[in-house]
Every structure is written in structure tokens, then in C-alpha cells.
Amino acid sequence: MSKVLEKEILEKESAGEPKQEILRVTDLKKYFPIKSGVLQKTVGHIKAVDGISFSINKGETLGIVGESGCGKSTAGRTIIRLEEPTEGKILFKGKDISHMKEKELRKQVRREIQMIFQDPYASLNPRKTLGSTIVEPLNEYNLYGNQKQRLERVGELLETVGLDSSYSNRYPHEFSGGQRQRIGIARTLALDPEVIIADEAVSALDVSIQAQVINLMQRLQEEFELTYMFISHDLSVVRHISDKVAVMYLGKIMEIADKNSLYEEPMHPYTQALLSAVPVPKKHGATQRERITLKGDIPNPANPPKGCVFCTRCPAAMDICREVQPILKTKKENHSVACHLFE
């Protein structure tokens, strides 16, 4: 009885709120062991993702930006459970999936969280026709009755992403990068997922094709009420597609905010430097921005600096930054930052 009641209360709550939380990640950690010696002893850990927390509402897009090696891809892969999380919780629709067994995952989660990969050349099997690639998830889950109906569905999917349904007999090598990325999206959509994790989905494409794919992703989001987690290093693309943006550095979230708040009033020195480093086509009337050039590279994630992980490159570093790790705190409405400057 009590369970039914709980469910009712939950439903009532969600009906009252305009936006429903679909994914919540709390203190997620993923450490990779470093092994060395003859006995392959673990001598240390690479802290690829080191305690990140965020939530995404249904129908929204969370952008994750950061330089290479900051752990943004690992975060995506851990959430979809391609990597086992070391610590922390992943709540999908209120259910903890962080330690769910593979069998359970397949039954309950895999269908609803899907992933689009970066390299459209490597993520399709070159020896399979488009039809058999896209029909595979449908077979796996026994959807749409018989094989003929499934193939019809494949045709529909191809048309949804702007390709011709007759392409299903062709092989991946016959398509260009942009078309392949569309095929990847069609395969992702085959199971009617709710959340799509797009890991650098448009980075390998030319700008004119990139624009086509971004528009397609936005159209699909409206049509199917999809929730995106959009991982990219391209700050302009992320601004265009996201509602909320998280900035990662060395496995930690440095700042997370609504996109306008983040792009117009960045608080963290790293976010400011990152934004100022993007070269922008200088049109007339555009204000000349001052560039903050950061010195050096990202430190080794196996041996991150003590205190704030950014302190080695931060232009505003103080003594406390080298000693105490700052905690992500809400400073404005929907704007959290992890920095001692705002204590």
C-alpha cells in the first residue's frame, strides 16, 4: 500500500512542477588504477572524474565543456555505465542505476539512455548495411512485430533524420561524414530513448554540415521531447544548443549555470580564460575582447595539484587556493561556482 501511495505523491509532485528531473548525478567518481611493476600492483589512481554532481530536467540540454583530458567523456561514459563508477550515485528517473547489474540495465535502462559517438567513421560497422545496423537494437528488444515491420520502421527512422529510406541497403562507406552522423542518430533513436548523451557529436564535421546536424538534433528534441547531455570542447556550439552548461577541469566541475548567465557573466577564472581564448570572427561592431592567455598545460590527472586543481594556471590564485580545495556553491540563481574568490 505504502508504495502505491508514494508513487501517487511522486506523480502529484511532478505534475505540479513544469519540468521533471530525469537524471541526477551525485558525487560521481571514476578512478582508473595505474599499474606498474611485474606484479601489476596498483601504484596510484588517475582521477578522471572526481566528484561531480548535477541534474538534468526532461526536455533540457546540459552542455559539458572542457579541454581534452578534463574527464568530460569519461563522465558521459560512466553515466551510461560503459565504465563502472568508483563512487557516487546516478539516479535515472529516481532509480539508482550506479550499481545495477548488467541484466537489469539491459531491461530497464539501456533502451532509455542512448549515446551518439564522436567519430561517425568508426562507430558504424563497415560490413553491415544501414538497414541491418539500425534494425539490430529492434531485434534485440523484439520490437515492432516481425522483420518486415521492423524494416519499415528503419525506413521511417532514416526519413526522420533526413535521409532517403531506400538507403537501407547501402554500406557506410558510401556516405559522407555528415550523413554517417545522421545514421548514428537514427540508430540512437531506434529505441525511442529519453536521454541521449552526445559525445563530441559534431566535432568531426565541417561547419556547414555541423550546422545541419545541430539543427536536426534540435528539431528531434522538440519532436520527441528528448533530453540531451551534450559533451563538447566547442564553446560556441555548446552555447547554441544547451540550456545549462557545466565547465569541467581535471575531473571536477568548476562552474555550472544557465547558459546566458555563464557566457555573459562567467565567475570562475578558468571559465573566463576559456571564453576569452576562443577566436571569434571579428565583425564590425563586435567589441574587442581582452584575451586571458593561460600559461602551461593541464596538470597530470594522476597527480593533481593540492588545493584547487586550477591553482597552477590561475591568474588570480591566492595562498588559500594552494591549500584548500574549493567546493561548488550556489552564488546566484542557477549559478554555482567552485572558487575561493567568491567565499
Binding site: 556547414s208 555541423q210 550546422a211 560556441s236 556550439v237 552555447r239 571564453l275
Partner: peptide
């Protein structure tokens, strides 16, 4: 030029 998303 127009297909590049703007940062601002």
C-alpha cells in the same frame, strides 16, 4: 560564415 554558431 553564417553556419558558425556565435559565442555571443
Amino acid at each position: 560564415i553564417q553556419s558558425v554558431p556565435s559565442l555571443t
